[in-house]
């Protein structure tokens, strides 16, 4: 039996919003420690990994490991039926072929239950090793979203170059070129740790997709290392994260 309750549906809506542009379907692996999900986009160049520890939930019960294969479009439709401030309870019996979502209004005067059919999905899991990134940058999530949006105006390709002087985003195309550089700030909004400078090129449309997670976190962490996929991590309070990985462009 699996049961998890969140005080607010809004965070669940935001999590699904952060996933659904990359994934159509995915499997939530639920265990007694919390919920994990890992899936690649169709083109296999980006990956999203979700972790929600059980402490994130108002109530959490999982007697036996259970995998819930979900169609994210359908889940989004169900979540649209709920208000952001409704409490939500997700329930599934062992070996169930459906999951139940119950919403309760803030004043408890309205409850609504929905059933969603579960899918049997073949998930391709990757082994992501603990990586020592040469450059680790923390910046406001809204700033990162703005940079990705502005870069997209100029080119499909974005070069991210990080050194002790700062992190620089560059794009150049037919229209012209854009360069945005952020230096470390004394107030700590932007922090930059660099062991070795790194410069890599990425597909801007994936970066823009990752910024769908912006409403979830004030800050975003970016990890760069030579010849390793980019890490873009949005913490979910103190109890989890959404991590995106993006393979660098091939040097041609």
């Amino acid at each position: 039996m699996f049961e998890a309750r969140l005080a607010s549906t809004l965070t669940l809506k935001r999590i699904v919003d952060a996933l659904r542009e990359i994934l159509n379907q995915s499997t939530l692996d639920c265990s007694d420690t919390g919920i994990q999900m890992q899936a690649m986009d169709n083109s296999h160049v980006s990956l999203v990994s979700l972790c929600l520890r059980k402490e994130y939930f108002e109530k959490y019960k999982c007697n036996r490991n259970i995998s819930l294969g979900l169609d994210l479009k359908s889940l989004t439709k169900v979540l649209k039926c709920a208000n952001g401030d409704d409490a939500v309870t997700i329930k599934a019996a062992d070996k169930a072929d459906k999951v139940e979502l119950s919403f309760e209004s803030a004043g408890k005067e309205r409850t609504a239950d929905y059933e969603l059919r579960l899918l049997n999905l073949d998930q391709e899991h990757l082994a992501i090793p603990e990586t020592e990134y040469n450059c680790v940058v923390h910046m406001p999530a809204t700033e990162f979203a703005r940079i990705c949006r502005d870069m997209a105006t100029f080119s499909e390709s974005v070069v991210i170059a990080c050194s002790k002087e700062g992190i620089k985003f560059s794009a150049s195309g037919e229209m012209g070129a854009a360069n945005i550089k952020l230096s470390e700030t004394t107030k700590g909004e932007v922090s930059i740790q660099v062991d070795e400078p790194v410069a890599l090129s990425f597909a801007g449309r994936y970066l823009s997709t990752f910024t769908r997670a912006t409403p979830l976190a004030e800050k975003v962490k970016i990890g760069l290392a030579p010849d390793v996929p980019l890490l873009v991590e949005y913490p979910i309070e103190d109890y989890g994260y959404i991590r995106y990985y993006l393979a660098p462009k091939v040097d041609d």
């Binding site: 690649m40 296999h44 160049v45 992501i128 499909e156 990985y245 462009k249 091939v250 041609d252």
Partner: peptide, 14 residues
């Protein structure tokens, strides 16, 4: 795909 490497080139299961 856009001259992108595939992630499995980096993170394939052993």
């Amino acid at each position: 795909e856009d001259l992108q490497q595939e992630l499995s080139n980096y993170y394939a299961m052993p």
